[in-house]
Amino acid sequence: MAEILKLLKDGNKPSLLAAGVNAFLGLIKGIAFFFTGNVAMFAEMMHSLGDAANQFFVYIGSALSKKAPTKQFPSGFGRIVNLVCLFAVIIVAILSYETVKEGWHHFIHPTGESKGMLIALGVLFIGIILEGTVLAKAGVEILHEAGQEKAGISTIPKAFAYLNRAKPATKLVFMEDLVATGGNVLAFGAILIAHFTGWANIEGLVSMIIGCMMFYVVAKVFLDNARGVIGETDEEMLNHIAHLVLDDPNIKDIVRLEVIKEGEFLHVELVAEADANLSLAFLDDVRDHLTEVILSQKGVSKVAILFDEDDGKLEWKHIGNRPANSTLEQ
């Protein structure tokens, strides 16, 4: 139990915060839907409840992924977070379908203007504030994980540029809360339009739009985490580490270099060529130095290095220009 509690303390904080906020919003939106009968509010209730369940599972997965390797699982448990994200999007997919179906029904057979407009608008306004706050915090976390400074009011736009460098859990929270904030704004507008124009179909239309936005998150998160489960190469970090390795004067060439994403971490496997006249003791010192350098790079948790005899040919082709900044380094 002590180990589980310790792991939970290291879980992804933005996902836990988002889960709590969305559970609260799902509750008050459900109450508002009960009193108003507003189908846009129903869509937002489903959206918030789906996000709450999703993000809670992601928090658990991010915590368990930090469990230390064992004899039975020597590569560790990093990919658990990807598996949990895949499971979580199934829940969102089901709720997305229900949201679109209910929106279509209301669009074809509108029930007239909903009751309790002020209640619905008040709840949605609270949702915009809370979801926007979580979105901003997730944006700050993305910048932190990418080694960037906070950007104030431009944090959210700036976070888009570094979204692919974010941890799976943080990326999911950012995307879900981006859609959730947008959904709240759309639902807010739909209620006002329905009230002032009498076009009740707008609420069903917006419900379908919100459902489709949820489906987009499902597709994006599914593809990202499916690649993570299989084992995806981090091309940018691979290029960066190749430069660091070839900067060592004792390394003549790289035979093989793999930088594999293991959940929130990176595992590096390197086979390098060195002068055959170097002693084993000297090569061991070179290995220790390279291991220390590579482990100091952001996100790298495991390094395995082997040496081969130099054949006199430089064959490593994957290396490009050195990154212009040091954001990949800790």
Rank of each mutant, 00 (worst) to 15 (best):
I4C: 15
I4E: 07
L5V: 12
L8D: 10
L8K: 01
K13E: 15
A18L: 06
G26E: 03
I28S: 13
K29H: 10
F35H: 14
F35S: 08
T36K: 14
T36P: 10
N38W: 15
V39W: 08
M41P: 04
E44Y: 03
E44S: 08
Y59M: 05
S65V: 04
K67H: 05
K71I: 05
R79T: 11
V81P: 00
L83V: 03
I90T: 06
I91S: 10
G103T: 09
P110M: 15
G112I: 10
E113F: 13
L118G: 13
I128M: 02
E131K: 03
T133P: 12
K137D: 15
A138W: 01
V140K: 12
A146T: 00
Q148A: 04
S154P: 13
K158V: 08
L172Q: 08
F174C: 13
V179E: 08
G182R: 12
V185I: 14
F188M: 15
L192R: 12
I193L: 11
F196D: 15
G198M: 14
E203S: 04
V217Y: 00
L223M: 05
L223H: 03
A226W: 10
G228L: 02
D234W: 01
N239G: 01
H243A: 01
L246E: 00
E258P: 11
L270R: 00
S279F: 07
F282V: 14
D284V: 11
D284P: 11
T291N: 07
T291Y: 03
K298R: 07
V300C: 05
A304L: 15
L306W: 05
G312V: 13
L314C: 15
W316N: 07
H318S: 05
L328V: 02
L328S: 09
